[in-house]
Amino acid sequence: MAAGGDHGSPDSYRSPLASRYASPEMCFVFSDRYKFRTWRQLWLWLAEAEQTLGLPITDEQIQEMKSNLENIDFKMAAEEEKRLRHDVMAHVHTFGHCCPKAAGIIHLGATSCYVGDNTDLIILRNALDLLLPKLARVISRLADFAKERASLPTLGFTHFQPAQLTTVGKRCCLWIQDLCMDLQNLKRVRDDLRFRGVKGTTGTQASFLQLFEGDDHKVEQLDKMVTEKAGFKRAFIITGQTYTRKVDIEVLSVLASLGASVHKICTDIRLLANLKEMEEPFEKQQIGSSAMPYKRNPMRSERCCSLARHLMTLVMDPLQTASVQWFERTLDDSANRRICLAEAFLTADTILNTLQNISEGLVVYPKVIERRIRQELPFMATENIIMAMVKAGGSRQDCHEKIRVLSQQAASVVKQEGGDNDLIERIQVDAYFSPIHSQLDHLLDPSSFTGRASQQVQRFLEEEVYPLLKPYESVMKVKAELCL
Rank of each mutant, 00 (worst) to 15 (best):
D6Y: 10
D6N: 11
M26L: 08
C27F: 11
F30K: 01
Y34R: 06
Y34D: 06
W43N: 04
L46P: 02
T52Y: 12
L53K: 01
L53P: 02
L53D: 00
Q61R: 06
E64T: 11
E64V: 13
N71T: 10
F74I: 15
K75E: 13
K75G: 12
M76T: 11
A77G: 14
E79K: 13
E81M: 00
K82A: 12
K82V: 15
R83F: 15
R83K: 10
D87Y: 01
C99D: 00
A103C: 12
G104H: 11
I105K: 14
G109Y: 01
A110L: 05
T111V: 00
C113I: 06
D117P: 00
L121H: 05
A127W: 00
K134S: 12
V138N: 11
F145H: 06
K147M: 13
R149Q: 12
S151W: 10
P153A: 09
T158D: 00
F160A: 05
F160Y: 13
Q161M: 01
Q161Y: 00
L165S: 03
G169L: 01
G169T: 03
R171M: 00
C172F: 04
L174T: 09
D182E: 03
D182I: 01
D182P: 05
L186Y: 05
G197C: 08
G197K: 03
T204G: 15
F208G: 06
L209G: 09
Q210Y: 01
G214W: 12
H217R: 13
K218E: 06
V219L: 14
V219W: 02
K224M: 10
R234S: 15
I237D: 04
I237F: 07
T239A: 15
T239F: 03
G240W: 00
G240M: 05
Q241L: 02
T244V: 04
R245C: 00
S253T: 14
S257G: 10
S261C: 05
K264I: 03
R270L: 00
A273N: 11
A273R: 01
N274Q: 09
L275M: 13
M278K: 01
Q285L: 13
Q286E: 03
I287P: 01
N297E: 01
P298I: 03
M299C: 08
E302L: 01
C304F: 02
C305F: 01
C305L: 03
L307D: 01
R309I: 04
R309F: 07
H310C: 07
V315G: 08
Q320M: 12
S323Q: 04
Q325L: 14
E328P: 03
L331W: 02
D332H: 01
D333C: 06
N336Y: 02
R338L: 01
A342R: 08
A344K: 01
L346C: 09
T347C: 14
A348I: 11
N353V: 09
N357D: 10
I358L: 15
L362Y: 06
V363W: 05
P366N: 10
R371W: 02
I373F: 05
Q375C: 06
P378L: 05
P378N: 01
F379C: 03
I386H: 08
M387H: 06
S395T: 06
D398P: 05
C399K: 04
L406G: 06
S407G: 11
Q409P: 03
Q409S: 09
S412K: 14
K415N: 05
K415E: 06
G419I: 07
I424S: 13
E425H: 14
R426I: 04
I427M: 13
S438W: 08
L440N: 05
P446H: 14
P446N: 04
S447R: 14
S448W: 11
F449A: 04
A453P: 05
S454H: 08
S454A: 13
L461D: 05
V465N: 04
P467E: 10
L469Y: 08
P471D: 15
K477V: 15
